[in-house]
Design a binder for these strands. Sequence first.
RNA 1: GCGCUUGUAGCUCAGCUGGAUAGAGCAGUGGACUUCGAAUCCAAAGGUCGCAGGUUCAAAUCCUGCCAGGCGCACCA
Length: 589
Amino acid sequence: MDRDNLFGLFKESIQGQVEHHLKAEFGAQENLTFKFEIPPEPSLGHLALACFPFAKATKQAPPKIAQLLAQKIEPNRAWERVVASGPYLNFFLNPKELASLVFPQVLKPDYGCSSLGKGQKVMLEYSSPNTNKPLHLGHGRNNLLGMALSRLLETAGYQVIKANLVNDRGIHICKSMLAYQERWVYAELPLPPTPQSTGKKGDKLVGDFYVAYDKKSKEDPTVADQAAQLLRDWELGKPEVLALWRQMNDWVLKGFEVTYQRLGCEFDRFYFESKTYQSGREIVLKAFGQGLCGKEDNGAISVELDDPNQPKKILLRGDGTSMYITQDLGTTVQKFQDYAPLDRCLFVVGNEQDQHFKTLFEVLGRFGYSFGLEHISYGMITLPEGKMKSREGTVVDLDDLLDELKGMAAEEILAREMFDPQTQGPQIEFTAEAIGQGALKFLILKSGAAKEITFNPKESLSFEGATGPYLQYTHARISSLLAKAATEPAVEPKLEIGADWNEGETGLLLALAKYYEVLLASVTDRNPGALCNYLFELCRSFNKYYYDTPVLKAETRTLVEARLGLCLAVQAVLAKGLRLLGIEPLTKM
RNA sequence: GCGCUUGUAGCUCAGCUGGAUAGAGCAGUGGACUUCGAAUCCAAAGGUCGCAGGUUCAAAUCCUGCCAGGCGCACCA
């Protein structure tokens, strides 16, 4: 058990004692299962152990077991009282002892870091955009999930390689290229448009052509053939086609980079499908040679899947060319070679590809690769009117959304008059950006990845209640309190003080101790939402406490120092948690 | 049709490795700023946990069936 995991240690010590008594009293031999819970009300205790599971081993009624254990277990430094409450055995922590354990832990710079993934190297592939249109809110969900997960994995001790597999080739790119060649938009410009000449972000410019293509293709079905011809020319390596392709991809990727930087997304490695799309063929041919695949009449290579409901999967076309799954076979093997020894590879990809990944993993296993593979699936974001469609212009553009949120935040900031618009323009900018992003990131990360999100701009974009800005506000309030303490009465926060902690304070101490386990759960479940909920609850408890309890105006100086210490500890954990989510902990807003 | 997935308060969602009266936020109602930031706090109100069976001492949680939404079912990606 990790020494930093206070809750874990508490549980472990209780478990040991309970086991001992149950064996001594009833001769219980079997493996006893322990189910710890947090009692519904603090007045019942701080930690509860349900005694139902012991009934079989002891042949006693759960309330009886609880009573007996309550008598047998000696209170110690950590446990002030142990009481039976029906079938539960409830433990009351000694707040002073708790404080003396919690404070030094919480203020360590690496509090929350665990050794769960120590020595393990994992690749996390996320984002993986197409280079024919700008990023929209759906990509936003992917990017935010990916970044949050990579940071969570890192705090758990994993070495994380963040990879982006860019889909930079194929018919969709050729559509934009065709529209560009034919100038279906920006026809009025004397020269072919560029991001410079139009003042447009590169991804937006290319996106305009993609939309133009779609419009045109509805009027004139022959353009599809032209796009297909362009793709063939690309594969043949026609210089002028390649040049245009490079040019347009370059614009798009430069545009993406701006958005990535803005969101705080980073990558250690880019893979480009233009370089990998033919890979995997050798792997399939080799497997065929080993008798692991079948051959279709026209020469295509296929496999039967475990699930009899699934049709047989083609791995190589009759003409010998690669398919989507073929290249994924190839790139996955390549990833494990590039970063050998690699323990795991996670793919953050939307749930429309659930089946694809199931198949991919199955086939790799069939071919003898024992990779640790995991698909991190997430639901679509839809609008109240329905699905987002880039072609029909019903998308929520990510850059635009961030701008809009920033603007809304700026209005709120100005209304509060915390900054002087004349002299503090840059601070206002920075803060507005942080609040806007805080709102979006928390909104997206708080709900389970499997769930679809209906994004209603009017209702979703809020800065009140269970939102990012609420957490940021809590952090800002604590910051200004601590700043005030340092100047006005000039008090230092003191830790490990044996103050007479009240119920609210004990609750906060417990919550701080719980952070460690929350992170572990977030990592193992690949669920940043657990961290979101925890942080929100922490802030709720703090805000209530803060409202009820004077800190700087507490009765004695000792009490002022102790309470300041507690505030400092809450601030520290809150800031750490927010950073993991990619949300800026603000000191003023 | 088959597979995966979701269905909890008017709305958005926690809880779902079974356990003490099902929790938040938003909206609506009432209240708290001459006290450390009211982007806050408090109170009341709001629920057949999609429906029906089953397993269990105990089911929102596990199993089965049904209903509804989403996604997928190409020698597309």
